[in-house]
């Protein structure tokens, strides 16, 4: 208990300290990784801890991003209420699609979530007049000042990403220690048994979808605000596959896995895009190799072989 708290607080402190030492290029990258890792934390809550494999999380990420960006663009909302609107958009979309998709299981669940996300992506294209479709739109620097902090500045951008990531990391650690989190794990391990112990498994899974969608939406809203851009590509299938890839690589059902997986994959793609335009090739190869040889991911293997206490 103390070991794992120390480990996670240590990571949070380390990321804070890196702000002062990293060269600008990696400093910017790490800010981006922390926001994307927050998205992965949201995904991991559903996939890693509840055992539900969604292929449509881009829907929630984009709901957050567009909920934020459209209200800034067309309602003139300030960043704080815009972020809140993004979160609410994600929660509502997750609540409705979750209630429908959870009537299915396994492969059907994967395809239903994929189809909902595809419908969401096409909807963004359909309303291209407002969303500017694939081209997207820029959020002006003047609209990105949160409580007097200019989020387009590297320092505040990094700090905002750090605060969001730390809150979600420690929040998810707390969640899986609570009875609710233990029940999610029980559902992942043996849903019928959990039901026959008196747990309302549908309600638990629905709350998990909503929480997971909410965190993903928050990450999407923050991404749009910190990097000043919203575009339809963030709603495409690729952005549903990414969190799956990051979580699988880092270790599904581990607290550190989402961050480790996002960091590794980000730099892997960053390095290979220096060599070829076909940088998604790396993503494909890593996916196949992981499913074949390390289905537990990096942190999962570490937990299995060395540190059994890792949460």
């Amino acid at each position: 208990m103390i070991r794992s708290l120390a480990l996670h607080l240590g990571l949070v402190a380390l990321l804070f300290a890196l702000h002062f030492v990293l060269p600008p290029y990696h400093h910017g990258n790490l800010a981006r990784v922390m926001v994307l890792a927050t998205y992965a934390i949201g995904y991991n809550l559903l996939f890693g801890y509840t055992g539900l494999l969604s292929l449509g999380h881009a829907l929630f990420f984009a709901a957050g991003m567009y909920g934020m960006a459209l209200s800034v663009q067309y309602l003139g909302a300030a960043p704080a209420p815009a972020l809140l609107l993004g979160l609410v958009a994600g929660l509502v979309v997750a609540g409705i699609t979750g209630a429908l998709a959870l009537r299915t299981t396994g492969v059907a669940f994967m395809i239903v979530t994929l189809m909902f996300a595809q419908a969401g992506y096409l909807t963004i294209l359909y309303f291209g007049e407002y969303t500017r479709g694939d081209e997207g739109f820029v959020i002006q620097q003047a609209q990105r000042v949160l409580w007097g902090l200019d989020l387009s500045q590297p320092t505040w951008r990094y700090m905002a990403a750090w605060a969001l990531f730390s809150a979600c990391l420690l929040g998810s650690l707390a969640l899986i220690r609570r009875p609710f989190g233990r029940t999610l794990i029980a559902i992942r391990e043996n849903e019928e048994r959990a039901r026959m112990l008196g747990y309302d498994t549908f309600a638990h899974k629905w709350v998990a979808v909503v929480l997971s969608g909410g965190i993903s939406a928050l990450a999407g809203a923050a991404y749009g605000l910190l990097f000043g851009y919203a575009g339809a590509s963030f709603a495409s299938v690729q952005y549903s596959i990414f969190p799956l890839l990051w979580v699988l690589l880092g270790g599904a059902g581990t607290i550190l896995g989402p961050f480790v997986g996002t960091l590794f994959m980000f730099y892997l793609i960053d390095l290979s895009s220096g060599i070829t335009t076909a940088y998604m090739l790396m993503a494909g190869v890593v996916l196949v190799l992981l499913t074949l040889f390390a289905p537990q991911g990096l942190i999962g293997e570490l937990r299995r072989r060395v540190w059994g206490w890792l949460p």
């Binding site: 029980a186 391990e189 043996n190 019928e192 048994r193």
Partner: peptide, 12 residues
């Protein structure tokens, strides 16, 4: 209710 075919949380 206890199951005829053992049903426990094997991973816990």
């Amino acid at each position: 209710y206890t199951f005829q075919i053992t049903s426990i949380f094997a991973g816990l």
